[in-house]
Design a protein around this nucleic acid. Sequence first.
DNA 1: ACTGGACTTGACGTCGGCGTCAAGTCGGAG
DNA 2: CTCCGACTTGACGCCGACGTCAAGTCCAGT
Lengths: 123, 123
Amino acid sequence: MRIGELAQRGGTTTRALRYYESLGLLTARRTANGQREYDEDGLRLLAEIRSLADIGFALEDTRPFVECLRDGHTSGDACPASVAAYRRKLAELDECLARLAAARDRVRTQLEQAEQRRRPCAR
Amino acid sequence: MRIGELAQRGGTTTRALRYYESLGLLTARRTANGQREYDEDGLRLLAEIRSLADIGFALEDTRPFVECLRDGHTSGDACPASVAAYRRKLAELDECLARLAAARDRVRTQLEQAEQRRRPCAR
DNA sequence: ACTGGACTTGACGTCGGCGTCAAGTCGGAG
DNA sequence: CTCCGACTTGACGCCGACGTCAAGTCCAGT
């Protein structure tokens, strides 16, 4: 299949696919006239990239999963590097969650205090 | 005081101060030779901007607080627009937290499954 | 007089993940 | 032959909050 079909089946755009190729994430062989030609494995790689990206992985962080699949593993997270990437992302998410929760609490406290000052007689 | 001193006392850089001025957030009067001259109110405004930015407010979203202070209020969140900004930010943070928590759960689930597959005999 | 700092404006660089436009090529349908 | 749609590469735009460099001004100290 060519780039347009893969983009449609993968729920993305041709621009994104060319970008992934520029990163070396999703390469393609070329037909005689220079067009990119993808197979079902390409769709599988794209699905892996997209599902990880949707979770919040940076494209660079999807690389171990993609390479794992290209190495013939049936699952992108069957390799140690992928598991390590999971762990890093998990730690990153936890830290981000903690920061955001703290920020939310500060905002909520500020909001409550501001409302107190504006309506000192409210119940 | 001039821009260097304000930057130091406010815990930021001269570049940031000029940027805030370009946004109309933190204006300054000029001395005869064209240098920016700030007073203690300027430091107060800067403190308001920085504390909000540190919580996660975009600079544009600190504008109501700054304008509130410039209107003579002792607190930046004494005005309705500031309270509204608090509410918007709170909602935004809650949404972001929910998304991140969902993402973390997905990653954790994936990680656990991957580890299961790698060590099928582990306890 | 000279040097060193602090100041000024202007403008380009950074990071990620593409969107979007330009200009050209190619193959098939009418 | 012509036209349309899909493809190609190249390159600039975008968002936010500045960092950084360039080139010039100005003032205080020695």
